[in-house]
Design a protein around this nucleic acid. Structure first.
Lengths: 206, 206, 206, 206
DNA sequence: CATGAATGAGTATTCATTCAT
DNA sequence: CATGAATGAATACTCATTCAT
């Protein structure tokens, strides 16, 4: 189609005025709701515009393609998640590794509950490999930072621990969508406990 | 046309000739490959037919809708998974709970590797709630059976243990798609270890 | 896609711009021509769009399904027919019942000639029973009104007379499609005469 | 598609054996039911075969195309209708024109009730003009014969009378499908009465 | 910038018909 | 002849995206 776009890469427009900024936020939140409700593929640009009480033209003004909209939203959510972890790091000086591990675990659960679109966006099949790896690396580093802050003496397999915590995020996300809430909640608690044991062990090992 | 869809539920047509039976197998395997490659929504019936070196009409002869094709394949994979677990149960009489837990864990990993379409099919957004719960319940029960067979004395939270193992299946599936294979493999091993510890504890507790 | 059709009933989109309004008119008239030419089932949305010198997407922008397009057109034609009868009622004060009966008969014939798609639309097999009955009742009432206006003293079987006139509409419609125009025209005249006699009788009876 | 068929016109196969003949009848009756139920376009060859408890292949063995199947059935029904009228002619020697007119009217009503597929077949849009005219001419001639037999003195506009009766067949057919049976039945009776009057008049005029 | 109309390639699905067994 | 599988053109409909006002 648009072969004359050549090197002019499509970028999300940065609106200069307040008016535009408000609109962007409204559009993003509407997109979040629709993605959470329908999934990425089934969500339509038209429905997102409608959800934002806006017009498609307006939506495209700010987000020239659907993948770009999804990516923008994804990045926003990642930033929030990272900010949350950073915040946690600052408050976990006195804690044991095990305690701060549980704190992370809980924070992840709360995050998913607040932003149910996150797993949808993270599971999108067209995220470039490198961006995906970078995001994961950043998150793992932040988790590691929290753990290290709590217990600086923790050994080198802290990366491993961070990886585990990150995988548990996946389960938290999936469980949120499972129908059998009660039973699944027990499983989550148990996983939390298993994580605590593992962290206690990692600490004492030193 | 289509004026009288009435209530006749669409069903998979069962082939009555050898040729038809062969074709069904070919179609299902082609569908498996395309689903694994593209995901459920992005997979097209046209591409599946082409992958099976068949015509679109032939595909529809046996699978009158895309959801029904996906469901048929999903059920087939579930049956294989259940058969595998049953098989495992029969061979885990002498093992410790921990050992059989690891065996299950490994079996799940192998299953996902052999049938990468499984997580795609299991994540489909339009599976009826009750079918989803039933499948999960069956799988959990089978896992519980394996564990019980190994160590009949295991306590009542065996359901919990089964739930945990089942969640680990999710991670196994996800990890298979992650780009950072090496690092992720270490995480999986670690989770396996955590599971072992937990099972050992559950056993000794008795 | 199409995974969440839910229960949102599809409705004709009302154009909000002048351009859209013009397009809707053009589309409806194109549909009328194609329906008249091919019949309801054989008419294709693609052909209708082409007839309107429009794109298929534009057609669907305003008429999201073929039945809805047909229904919209049908309702429009019904409105015109009703308006015509109302108009007739206003001008038939001085006439005899027989004269106004013939006037109706002629009006129906002219209507069918102007809107040959009408019988096609009215014969569609998927019109809800209640809508069909309502339309017929309304038409009958309007015809009755014309007759009553002409000759208020007419007796109670005026409903019957209206029913007869309405059935004659069917013949007028069918005859318009018959090849043997000449012969058929004589039959129509004769039926007109029979109607006149019957109405004269009904009047004198009083 | 089949461009090499050249002059070899497709014809309904005449089966030589009893077995084949039975099958043909079963297929035709099945087709009749499906056409009556769904209309011509919405009826599918597959459904017809199923209704006949036969296979698609078998259906095509005898009726190589759908239009040919419809036409064969149509002709069969026309033959029965003509036979019925002929029969009527033979028994209407002593009757008045008016009486035999009513007899025809009733016979047509009974015919439609017995063969509800008839109007569907007669309304098919792809009947060649000449065949359509020929059928109508034959029917009109037979109706004329009945009337003439009853009252040989009837004047030349007997063709006209036959035309009227034939048009009334249309109404009989349509009314059978109308939802408001009761009211419509009264209309039909009234039309019958109008016909009687007209015939009485035509006779006395002589 | 906002709006909503225009576009058309793409998708699931149907069905008459042909053909191998 | 019977059977049912194979075929693919045709059809309704969707949706991301562009563009005129």
């Amino acid at each position: 189609m648009t072969s004359q776009k050549s090197s002019e890469e499509l970028k999300t427009r940065t609106p200069k005025r307040q008016r535009g900024h408000d609109r962007v936020v409204v559009l993003l939140e509407a997109a979040a709701r629709v993605f959470a409700r329908k999934g990425y593929e089934a969500a339509t640009m038209t429905e997102i515009a409608a959800e934002a009480q806006s017009s498609i033209g307006s939506l495209y003004q700010f987000f020239p393609t659907k993948p770009l909209l999804a990516e923008t939203l994804h990045i926003d959510r990642l930033e929030r998640l990272k900010a949350g972890l950073q915040n946690l790091a600052e408050r976990s000086s006195g804690l044991s590794a095990a305690d701060s591990g549980e704190a992370i675990f809980d924070a992840l659960g709360a995050f998913i509950e607040e932003f149910p679109e996150f797993p949808v966006l993270a599971a999108r099949r067209d995220i470039p490999k490198d961006r995906k790896m970078r995001s994961r690396a950043e998150l793992k580093e932040l988790i590691a930072a929290v753990l290290r802050r709590a217990e600086p003496s923790i050994s080198d397999d802290i990366t491993l621990m961070s990886g585990i915590v990150l995988e548990l995020l996946r389960i938290a996300a999936a469980v949120a969508n499972e129908p059998d809430a009660k039973e699944d909640q027990r499983v989550v608690s148990e996983l939390r406990l298993m994580l605590r044991r593992r962290l206690e062990e990692a600490t004492s090992k030193t």
